Simulated assay, not measured.
Amino acid sequence: MNHQLKPVSDQVIVITGASSGIGLATALAAARQGARLVLAARNGSALADAERRVREAGGEAVHIVADVGRRSDLEAVAQAALERFGGFDTWVNNAGVSIWGKLVDVSDEDHRKLFETNFWGVVYGSTIAVEHLRQRGGALVNVGSVASDMALPIQGMYAASKHAVKGFTDALRMELEADGAPVSVTLVKPTSIDTPFPRHARNYTGQEAKLPPPVYPPEEVARAILHAAAHPARDIYVGGAAKMMASMQKHAPGTMDWIGANVMVGQQLRDEPVGDPHGALHHAGQDGAVRGDQPGHVMGSSAYTRASLHPIVGAALFSAAGIAAAAWLSAGRQRH
């Protein structure tokens, strides 16, 4: 279906998880383009500060405290958008949290809470948004992960939740297409992003968490989200590493299993004791920051993602990426 989406400057955009990280970066980027925003998260003081920063950046905003794991909270977010702005044009399901720890060590309660946020939060937000967008058209943007396509050791349930988000998002897209609904549905799949995400995670390992390299800035995810708000897209990988790893998972799953078992665990842990093992799984965290404190190098941007958002340049890039992936896979098989 040929979806007609408004420019970001003419839109009202709802963003969950807007008090830090990707959500806050997206809100500020949208504000600079003149969008009106509805910001949702659990931390009221951080949301109030985010609203102030949006106004300073040239946008207009309203915030509402909400836990995405409760449908009634997200219904209140949609109602706030209707009352303040008369509706919304794009809904971004961004809120998410993780757990660092082996699956057998993590409590059922913590696993269940992660799914309430990462999966059911997307389900509630999507179904509420679609009910509204069917009438006026617009975009639904769900933030998945490269973990939607592959598994991660010591973040196993996080990966499972992102697999579930992918399955739900793909099925919803097909159903909307079958109904002829004027709603674009995009799944954004970032790789490691420098946000407070590791500090917000529940941590069973005894060591501070970090993200496996390469790591990209949150502004690159914001760019992808806002592109999807104005230009229909099925999937957008953020970071060339995300596309590369997804391709390896598809074509050489055994090699990826070996990498996961022998490399990925160490790449996700710092050599220092964990400060707050509870994180923000069950309650609001210390929000307000776009960037995290990832050790090591953080990429300035993603040439792959920026090119992928441009059809002509992207086609050439995909061809080159395919050749590079084939060479990497060949080398990986030889090592394995």
Rank of each mutant, 00 (worst) to 15 (best):
D257H: 12
D257P: 03
D257K: 12
W258E: 11
N262W: 15
V263C: 07
V265C: 08
G266L: 04
G266I: 03
L269I: 10
R270Y: 02
R270L: 07
R270A: 03
D271F: 06
E272T: 15
V274D: 09
G275P: 09
G275C: 14
P277G: 11
P277E: 14
H278Y: 13
H278G: 12
G279M: 10
L281I: 15
H282L: 13
H282S: 13
A284Q: 05
G285A: 06
G285E: 01
A289C: 01
V290W: 00
R291E: 03
G292H: 00
G292F: 01
D293G: 01
D293P: 00
Q294R: 11
H297E: 10
H297P: 04
V298M: 02
M299G: 00
M299Q: 08
G300W: 09
G300Q: 10
S301R: 13
S302T: 02
S302E: 00
S302N: 02
Y304G: 00
Y304E: 02
R306A: 00
S308Y: 03
S308E: 07
L309G: 03
L309H: 04
L309I: 09
P311V: 11
P311L: 15
I312Q: 11
I312W: 10
V313D: 04
G314D: 03
A315S: 11
A315K: 05
L317T: 10
F318S: 15
F318Y: 13
F318K: 14
F318D: 15
